[in-house]
Amino acid sequence: MNTQVRSITADNNNNVYIGTDNKGAFFLSTIELTKEKPRAKQINELKTNTGINAIAVDSNNNIYFGIHRIGLYIIENNTKIARKINEINSSVFIIKISNQNNKVYVSEADYKSTMDVEYLINIIN
């Protein structure tokens, strides 16, 4: 089975996060990126055979992952451990973060419907 990249972003320290369609999420450090043959490391808590639809970074360097049929995960700044945000339990397709107030906007839908449910969740006070 071929793996395709669904999402990619860099954090505030220029580390790169890659979301795939069937192998979860991967991390490339800035040090690794300087090597001739860089190798991405799989993020243990985000090993999944379903897609990482979206990745976003807020001003506090928290990284958010929208996962198909699972929900929203966060790696809080400097923890390097992903944890589930329990308020969202269906597919997350889009994550946008306001530069003004650090609010996280999520577009989600359960797998039985189209993307018809949009709402605001304030994760960061």
Rank of each mutant, 00 (worst) to 15 (best):
K80S: 02
E87C: 00
N101V: 02
Y111C: 06
E76C: 00
S29F: 11
V104S: 03
N49T: 07
N99I: 05
I74V: 15
I8Q: 08
V5Q: 01
I121H: 13
E76P: 00
E45S: 06
F65C: 04
S91I: 03
N61Y: 04
G51N: 05
N22L: 06
N14E: 13
N122E: 10
I31R: 12
G66W: 02
I121M: 10
N86E: 05
S7C: 15
G66R: 02
N99V: 05
S59F: 06
K41E: 12
I97C: 07
Y17Q: 11
I121C: 04
I121A: 04
K96L: 09
A10R: 14
V57W: 08
K103C: 07
S98F: 07
T114P: 04
D110Q: 08
H68S: 05
Y64E: 03
F65Y: 02
R83C: 00
I81C: 00
K80Y: 01
I18D: 09
S7L: 11
K103Y: 10
N44K: 13
T3S: 13
L33W: 12
M115T: 05
E108T: 12
I85D: 01
K37D: 14
N44A: 13
N53G: 05
L46A: 03
L33G: 13
I74K: 08
E108H: 10
I67Q: 10
I97V: 12
I70A: 00
L28A: 13
S90E: 12
I8H: 09
L120S: 07
T50N: 09
E36L: 15
R6W: 11
I70F: 02
A40I: 01
A10W: 09
F27M: 07
I123M: 10
A56L: 05
N22Q: 09
E36Q: 13
P38M: 11
L28Y: 14
K37W: 11
N62R: 03
D116R: 13
I94M: 04
N78R: 00
N12D: 11
T30A: 15
A54C: 09
N22I: 07
A56Y: 04
V16I: 15
N12A: 08
I124V: 15
I74T: 06
D110I: 04
E32Q: 13
G66Q: 06
R39M: 14
N15M: 09
G66N: 02
R6A: 06
V5N: 02
D110S: 11
E45R: 07
V5S: 05
V5A: 05
G24M: 10
D11S: 05
K35P: 12
Y73E: 01
N62E: 03
E118Q: 13
M115R: 12
Y119K: 15
D110M: 03
L72F: 01
K35C: 14
V5P: 03
Y105F: 15
I74L: 02
Q100N: 14
I52C: 06
N53S: 07
D58S: 05
K41R: 15
V104M: 05
I55E: 02
F27I: 03
I63D: 03
I52G: 06
T30K: 15
Q100Y: 11
Y111A: 09
L120W: 04
K112N: 15
M115A: 12
I85V: 08
T9C: 15
I70M: 06
N2K: 14
I121V: 10
N53F: 08
N44C: 01
